[in-house]
Amino acid sequence: MRGIAGRAGRRFVSSLPALFGVLVFTFLLMRVLPGDPAIFFASGPNAGQAEIEDIRRRMGLDKPVPEQLLLYLKDIGTGNLGRSMTTGQPVLNDLRNRLPASLELTFCALLIALVLAVPLGILAALRPGSVVDHAVRLLCTLGVCVPTFVSGLLLIYVLYYLLGIAPDPTGRIDIFASQPPEVTGFLLVDAAIAGDWEAWWAAASQLVLPACTMALFVLAPLARMTRASMLAVLTSDFIRTGEALGLSRRRVILVYALRNALLPVITIMGIVFSTMLGANVLVEKVFSWPGVASYALDALLSSDYAPVQGFVLLMASIFVLVNLVVDLLYGLADPRVSIG
């Protein structure tokens, strides 16, 4: 156990230079991109040169770039991510308010994807080349090649517009439902804590469509990975041992094969999670989901430096964190890892 913690610690320390690199790179990238924030945030198209200069000075853009970078790093060191020009709020607050929305969506999507992908992967591996295998392959291919905004809109069209089962696809909770008192920021958790099941249901039904859209997109890597590693494990010697000594089919597949086959799936899961959190901005846009990705996109379009830099830093940190968690999980799941 201590070995695993030590390894996690070492991994964390060794990822710090990468985090720093991300910081500097994003900073420089934002300066290189065309667009002048001072002009963008000036009161109007006919704002005077003096006003623009004033804004520029207030934002610290009149200083040379290296000095700006040092100031920025100093701010980061004191936990200050700057202020968003669009919302007028400190970036840290904005991110803190919006991150739970993204996390809740991503967690649910990952859960749905896993619940679907793992059994599908197993089924496909048990009968390679069969109808089931091909059906799973088709589903996975569709999931990857249909862009999320198309599948999201399709789901809305069918389930909301045609059938009327799903609620109005905007935001995290029906505007007429009462918002539960905020504890964690996760609506489902908060509603459950407050015992407000009506709000819970409202939030859950809002969540289903975007979560399914996201899940469909990441179904393929998870299901294909499960299938491939399951196929490899099923031909290994210890499965033959299990068969030779009369273990039940269920035990051989679920305890002997699946647990071994899930090891690489854990690794893929970490990558999939990080991707979903940051890159699925389209889902957030289609469903007007108040998450961090759409926030960062809006900021990027208006050359608002601070939120974009804050967002990239947040994503990089989450990526490191997720990798640590994956490492820990892997260490728990595979006794061979803790040595060496």
Partner: peptide, 30 residues
């Protein structure tokens, strides 16, 4: 029959055992 009336042991014994299950449990499984 398998395991109870006729059993088999293999070449490369380390690969023939489940790598992530304690050996005591594997014997108990049988």
């Amino acid at each position: 029959l398998r395991g109870a009336a006729m059993s088999m042991i293999f070449q490369n014994p380390r690969a023939a055992l489940n790598p992530i299950r304690p050996v005591g449990l594997q014997i108990a499984d049988v």
